[in-house]
Design a protein around this nucleic acid. Structure first.
Lengths: 122, 122
DNA sequence: TTGACATATTCCCATATAAGAATGTAATTT
DNA sequence: AAATTACATTCTTATATGGGAATATGTCAA
């Protein structure tokens, strides 16, 4: 079996850096394809293809106006990703506090070496 | 150019569902490879390969003990993902409030139809 | 040393990419 | 209708994948 399609879910879709750029660009305001091309200096077909992937997984929405198509990011679709990553938050907090503890222990050691047994308070 | 390597960053690495499972499993406690194989019912070579990818991008750490290797997830490495997704939080909040507004407007309409012009307060 | 156990690596294969180039399609203007 | 503008699709190509099977490596035990 090969790698899962980029269109299989939001996780695969946002693995591509340009698609993340596009999402950020379209989060603030809807934009026609040409603006994305200009703003991110990518080729037009490339942008259309990336937008196709993003549309497929619901990460962007389109609105047509004459010969322009306005795309905007559908932030809701990014939420599952945020939530999945969020389930690890308590773990990285623990890790951080362990790192802190160790750092503090080391600092203490260093202190007791440089200042042998003089004036423990302060 | 082909798709970026799964080992190019955390985004690509976690795009694979089994690797996300492994990360969740190893978040609570370090585990030898055999436990992962049993818990997720995957083939051992498959697990080793996934662990290789995760190790490459710093998503897991290893400790050897005799002929066992204990893996644990390095939650810190998931943080950038959480933070990137988090930059869209205010947008999905806005979207939600818009949806709410619309729902409330509709409810109001429905109400004014069923209760024509009777007692607007309350 | 031999053997058993735990994990890693290699090879093969079907599949999917992303970029680039070229072409297609749809809507608008002249 | 012809030309133009704005996007989308198709084709090719180099490259990477994940699973399965087989094999290699490393560590301990008898």
């Amino acid at each position: 079996m090969a790698r899962a399609a980029t269109t299989s879910d939001a996780f695969n879709a946002v693995a591509e850096p340009r698609r993340r750029q596009i999402l950020s660009y379209l989060a603030l305001q809807e934009r026609p394809v040409g603006d994305i091309v200009a703003a991110l200096s990518l080729d037009q077909p490339s942008v259309s293809k990336h937008l196709g992937v993003l549309r497929n997984v619901g990460l962007v929405r389109v609105r047509r106006d004459g010969r322009h198509k306005f795309y905007r990011t559908n932030a809701e679709a990014i939420r599952p990703l945020h939530e999945w990553a969020g389930t690890f938050e308590r773990f990285w907090r623990h890790q951080l506090s362990r790192v802190k503890e160790i750092a503090e222990e080391k600092a203490k050691e260093a202190q007791s070496i440089s200042k042998p047994v003089v004036d423990p308070q302060i």
